[in-house]
Write a protein that binds this DNA or RNA. Structure first.
Lengths: 210, 210
DNA sequence: AAAGTACGGTACGATATCGTACACGTCAAG
DNA sequence: CTTGACGTGTACGATATCGTACCGTACTTT
């Protein structure tokens, strides 16, 4: 039994990984509709029998692909650390957010989820909650603390968080998703820093009496 | 039945319109891949011959659908009028923008364009230029004037415009596109007004030395 | 060594789609 | 009345896809 878990499942597991990698490439490149199981098969090699042994049907394979890419692509979204000042936290949060969005996986995942949202409602919800939703929640929690301490003047922290992240995103993300243009690092950094400055000045507590 | 010279040419045009309407419904609901010509046909009635007479193939029909929906959905994006103050202009621009994005046509068009961007690069580019790109250009031009007059302190007007519109969009749009939740008017209005206030305060010309 | 299991390659059934072709009916014009 | 253009319905060819079935092979365990 012990040696079994080393040899036998390992081959199966490696095969499964290989299938997942090939399927990821094809599904994200061509979309669920245009991608075919035979295409995956011809890339990974092997027979249909083993393919359908690991994943009972096309939908299951797609779900596995999305789950893996999601966890990989969205891992960089972390809550801002309490240390450091507001500017530093916003810079880091904005940079991480944009890097995730503009990463190859991020762009492909975004397109795939929007395309297949009607047919994979559960996946779409999980993608939102684990991606943009989580990021904005992290930031909103952060804002709530600062608001309680009077460091920032924010009416609704949740809305403010989404707005800051939306400002950081700008149109750069959509342009990249549509393939209209690929943003330069320079423009991205300029965008982030300008968003941070505008936001900080926009939420700075004014004079108390006014 | 009634008039002679009126029926024949008009019938062809009406038929074409009927096909377009049915195709719009089906293409935007099911996506280019899942929609079929037979499906369009069974809804509009008639024969394949006339369908392919009006539109030589599936791609041409899709392009016609997108062109029509685009011009209809994006028409509400207008440049802000020079009259009134900054707050009023931002409120109107933000409201129009969000209304376009969250309208049924806007949501469906957004999903369709992102889904098919790789296979319809020209359409994707035109969508971006006529939609988000145009809106941000309008606002950027507006900002440039105000910046020249010293009314606002904006480093890069184009970036600032995209950021304001991005802030207005927030996560509400993405959530709606993904079908995660449909936003209430109340939340949308609160989002817009908060974005306007933050932006105005964030771009107000401060003391020169600081 | 024997046996069971995972795997490979391919053929197959069922279905769906795009675009064309063919036969027929309707209606205005010469 | 003949004729030609246009619309309808349906059949068809070519192709593609999903998932199953069959059969032979290599490898692991007992």
């Amino acid at each position: 039994m012990t040696s079994i878990s080393d040899t036998q499942p390992r081959r199966g597991w490696e095969k499964r990984e290989a299938i997942l990698i090939a399927a990821t490439e094809i599904f994200l490149r061509d979309g669920y509709g245009r991608a075919s199981m035979d295409q995956v098969l011809s890339r990974v090699g092997g027979s249909k029998r083993t393919l359908y042994k690991h994943f009972p049907n096309k939908e299951a394979l797609f779900e596995a692909v999305i789950a893996k890419v999601s966890s990989r692509a969205l891992a960089a979204l972390e809550p801002p650390s309490g240390e450091g000042d507001l500017r530093r936290a916003l810079l880091k949060m904005g940079t991480d957010y944009v890097n995730v969005l503009l990463s190859p996986d991020g762009l492909l995942l975004y397109r795939a989820m929007i395309s297949e949202a009607p047919h994979f409602a559960k996946l779409a919800r999980r993608f939102f909650e684990d991606g943009p939703g989580r990021a904005s929640r992290y930031l909103a929690d952060y804002f709530r603390e600062y608001k309680a301490n009077g460091i920032v003047d924010i009416s609704d922290p949740q809305i403010a968080a989404e707005q800051f992240l939306g400002a950081v995103r700008g149109d750069v993300h959509l342009a990249a998703v549509l393939g209209v243009r690929t943003p330069s690092m320079q423009l991205v950094n300029a965008t982030i820093s300008q968003a941070v400055e505008t936001f900080i000045r926009g939420t700075a507590p004014g004079k108390v009496g006014e």
